[in-house]
């Protein structure tokens, strides 16, 4: 299971980097979603996977009786997902505003020093 997920993470990283290097901001955003998913998945897998055993401690015991799933990476992943969602929403907003302002999302002409072809006032 770990090996399978690790392969998937590698695939996601590769696809994400390919998208990010394409020079279009929208594709960059797609790549960003994928790469952040790859990163969260890798944190998740790093905690090792235990199938079908929720990390619950029975009443009266101090520690779980059987081998249970690692709860820490789940908490970390949850944090990372929430943060990632917020940042992605912001980036999407930025892209929309940039599109309205610049009329395009081509990263190469959005670089500083190069004037955009047309500027519309909003």
């Amino acid at each position: 299971m770990e090996a399978l997920l690790s392969g998937l993470i590698g695939l996601l990283f590769a696809a994400a980097l390919y998208q990010m290097l394409s020079g279009h901001f929208l594709r960059f955003l797609l790549g960003l979603v994928m790469i952040s998913n790859a990163a969260t998945l890798s944190v998740f897998v790093a905690g090792r996977l235990t199938l079908g055993q929720s990390p619950l401690i029975p009443k009266g015991a101090d520690a779980p009786l059987v081998e249970v799933a690692n709860a820490l990476p789940q908490a970390l992943v949850l944090t990372a997902i929430v943060i990632g969602l917020g940042l992605f929403a912001f980036t999407l907003f930025l892209a929309i505003r940039a599109f309205r302002r610049l009329g395009h999302l081509n990263a190469n002409s959005a670089l500083p020093g190069l004037r955009p072809r047309k500027e519309t006032h909003s």
């Binding site: 901001f25 930025l94 940039a98 610049l102 670089l111 500083p112």
Partner: peptide
Amino acid sequence: PGTLRGAMPYVA
């Protein structure tokens, strides 16, 4: 508009 052009590489 200059802000947006600067913000995009910064954010990315």
